[in-house]
Design a protein around this nucleic acid. Structure first.
Lengths: 237, 237
DNA sequence: TAGAATTTGTTCGTATGTATG
DNA sequence: CCATACATACGAACAAATTCT
């Protein structure tokens, strides 16, 4: 690399790395070269490389983790939390292609939490449905939904076909439902969730618990969702 | 330890540990004895101890972290996110004693994010104010507030006296202000934030960015808050 | 699961060029 | 011309976190 006079070397390196990222040489979510590799590539001191990287961290273009490396920040989707927000609408409204992948489902007896949230008796049979929400093929969240089995028998098959819970609920006569309350917390993902999200186990997830009710106010779904904190931000108005 | 007949040993151990926790022998947030220590204390096999611990994890009384140990879960404060929610009201409403500790403050020039959120020119002088919000002496959140320096000159001293930003803003003629939007994400804390929160660096925080506006709609404060995810849960109606 | 290797973070020290008064 | 301050750039050593074997 030959240096233009008048502009400091670290700024020229910053510029070069920035254009590499823009060109997709280093893709979002993936690891950047190590400092030593960049030292060799640019033929400068490690401090100089670090100065350039620090500038990229400042502008939120990359994120650095001690002992692991530097990673290109992914575009963050703003996910508004409202009574009627629907995943597919939000994602396609951002000009990204939404998809909801079925993972697995099971019928089991409601534990204390599920029973309370769905307002059913302890031990009532409920459907547990795992799915992954994606945008442009990148997983954004893994959702666990609980629905009363008696009322929604066979909904899983419809969900697999339509890839939409909203759509599946319509087939059961529920044209409209609203989000009641949402509890928000943060946690580290289990290895299963981390692998479904295709993210490192040490990156946190935003975890939400929410209850959807039909127009009569009867709970129809209790959902636990883990959002990748690197790819999604929740917005409250 | 002598075992009562008719009740499985692991349940008796669970009961004993539960009462130890209730008695404060193991305090919230602190480490439980290691499995091997419990094995020696109860004179049983490690599997029996693990069975009891698993029950405590199920009921969310303790949390275990691989390689670190088991920790007594702390009581989780539900923190409603609303346009007019005030920290001290929420905490005292839960019959806990709120406190807001001043940490440090500084006057500096607004960077891009701060300038945009406060709707001021880049480089405008702003007050940066760090504080820790506590309930019963336990830190719940560290807050970083940015206020335009020109309008709120001397507010830091008032904040230190009154321990309340709401109160301090009143002295500047702001009797009422509302939260506009809140962005919610999750992250791992910096070492500074972790130590202020008195929590492990590998436990995530819930991070919020919010803008407060006065009754005329003019931004008066931009706040970045890191909530301990082990002690606080955000609630959206 | 214990230690080695890898990778980033921090702190010394040295030297150089530039702007300022 | 000199003194000072400041940003840049390089070198070496060690600390801390993670990953590999």
């Amino acid at each position: 690399m030959d240096w233009e006079p008048g502009l400091s070397i670290w700024k020229q390196i910053e510029k070069q790395l920035l254009s590499d990222i823009a060109d997709g040489v280093f893709a979002p979510g993936y690891k950047m070269p190590t400092e030593m590799e960049l030292v060799r590539r640019f033929g400068v001191n490690r401090h100089t490389v670090r100065r350039a990287m620090a500038a990229l961290v400042d502008t939120n273009v990359v994120r650095v983790e001690q002992g692991r490396g530097a990673f290109v920040q992914e575009p963050i989707l703003d996910y508004p939390l409202g009574a009627k927000t629907r995943f597919s609408q939000i994602v396609s409204g951002r000009h990204r292609l939404p998809d909801k992948r079925f993972v697995s489902s099971e019928v089991l007896k409601a534990n204390a939490l599920v029973a309370q949230c769905l307002d059913v008796k302890l031990g009532t049979r409920v459907i547990e449905l795992f799915s992954v929400s994606e945008a442009d093929g990148v997983p954004l969240a893994v959702a666990t939904s609980y629905l009363p089995a008696a009322r929604f028998d066979g909904i899983v098959e419809i969900f697999i076909q339509t890839k939409s819970l909203t759509e599946a609920l319509k087939r059961f006569g529920i044209d409209d439902y609203t989000r009641k309350t949402t509890r928000i917390s943060a946690a580290l993902p289990s290895s299963r969730v981390a692998s479904l999200l295709k993210q490192a186990k040490n990156r946190p997830v935003i975890s939400t618990e929410s209850i959807d009710v039909d127009s009569a106010g009867v709970p129809i779904e209790f959902g636990v969702t883990a959002f990748s904190s690197d790819r999604v931000q929740l917005i409250v108005e």
